[in-house]
């Protein structure tokens, strides 16, 4: 496009990018807290799965961005990357006008060309707002995986009986994270590899949010299950949102212990209830409902752009395990 340079992010672009980001996202949101350079570096420089950022520059300034947070995913027996589309924007002075191509669309197309493909990122996904959804469906091959339900427990449960295994708070994750995920992976045909690198980056080292991380350890000290949550507004105001839940199938005592522990934390933090997202095909979907969670519609569509027919949206709907923590919603 005339006068614009569209390319992958380079060192030195950060401050201009942040300035535009804070201007765009602060414009319509009175509660917006400007993003700091430290927060940006956490998200886009320290992600153990890499960086996916394309920018458009005009007169040396970043005026548009199409970006994603990649995750390493185990899919049908091998490791690949998916990436969550986040923070896409165009400076108001550079938005599409009649007779002009959309800078947003052009930046996005360059992004997909660079990062998406059968041998590159297999799936780009996200939870776009209404405007980005319309544009993405029309121009960028966004497709709906599902209209997203949330599981919501509207009243916190009474304390659990003492016979349950004990759940403890976890400071950081180590090798055992991956061992636990290995035990769960057979029940998920596609899921983000939950290892220490991912969990520590996403939930321990987050520069703004504090997550409560509960684990159940067996007598030998091995990790049997994990529940990570924080107070946030998703689906309803002021809920204790489970950002990640990893318990091997059938280990319901571990699940009960984690649910009891996270409910205690929710109560201590003053949350009104508990929320989670669990794919409907999972055995945990009826399990949570049996414990009083309601399946509540949300304003969100889980969308994806797939770069391989074997990972199309129908397949993803029935095989992809994802959690709120793979979104930027909590």
């Amino acid at each position: 496009m005339d006068g614009y340079e569209i390319r992958a992010l380079r060192p030195g672009d950060e401050l201009s990018l942040l300035q535009t980001f804070n201007q765009v996202f602060g414009a319509d949101d009175p509660g917006f807290q400007p993003r700091t350079l430290e927060q940006w570096r956490w998200a886009f420089e320290r992600n153990p799965a890499g960086q996916r950022v394309f920018v458009a520059l005009h007169a040396g300034e970043v005026v548009a961005q199409y970006a994603a947070l990649p995750v390493r995913v185990w899919i049908d027996g091998g490791p690949r990357h998916f990436a969550q589309i986040v923070d896409s924007m165009v400076h108001p002075a550079h938005r599409a006008r009649a007779q002009r191509q959309s800078l947003f669309v052009e930046t996005a197309r360059a992004f997909f060309e660079c990062y998406g493909g059968a041998q590159k990122d297999l799936v780009h996904f996200g939870w776009p707002n209404a405007r980005a959804l319309r544009l993405g469906e029309r121009e960028l091959h966004y497709d709906t995986v599902r209209t997203q339900l949330a599981l919501v427990l509207e009243a916190l449960p009474a304390p659990a009986p003492a016979a349950l295994p004990e759940a403890v708070e976890l400071e950081r994750f180590d090798l055992q994270a991956k061992w636990l995920w290995d035990r769960c992976a057979d029940s998920h045909r596609a899921s983000t590899i939950r290892d220490a690198d991912y969990w520590n980056w996403r939930f321990v080292d987050h520069p703004r949010q504090r997550y409560t991380r509960h684990g159940v350890l067996d007598a030998a000290g091995f990790l049997r299950g994990v529940c990570i949550a924080r107070r946030a507004s998703f689906a309803q105001q002021d809920l204790w949102c489970i950002a990640d839940w990893l318990v091997p199938p059938g280990e319901t005592q571990v699940g009960l212990a984690l649910l009891a522990a996270t409910a205690r934390a929710a109560r201590a933090q003053g949350a009104r209830g508990i929320a989670a997202i669990v794919p409907e095909w999972s055995a945990w979907f009826p399990w949570f409902q049996a414990r009083g969670f309601l399946a509540v519609p949300t304003a969100y569509r889980t969308i994806a752009r797939s770069f391989h027919p074997r990972a199309g949206v129908d397949w993803l709907r029935w095989n992809w395990w994802y959690q709120l923590g793979e979104s930027d919603l909590v």
Partner: peptide, 19 residues
Amino acid sequence: PDTASEWLQFQRMGFCVAP
């Protein structure tokens, strides 16, 4: 439809949601 008022009320009365 999950937007109908019955959707949540039925669940409160014992229904579960399944795909």
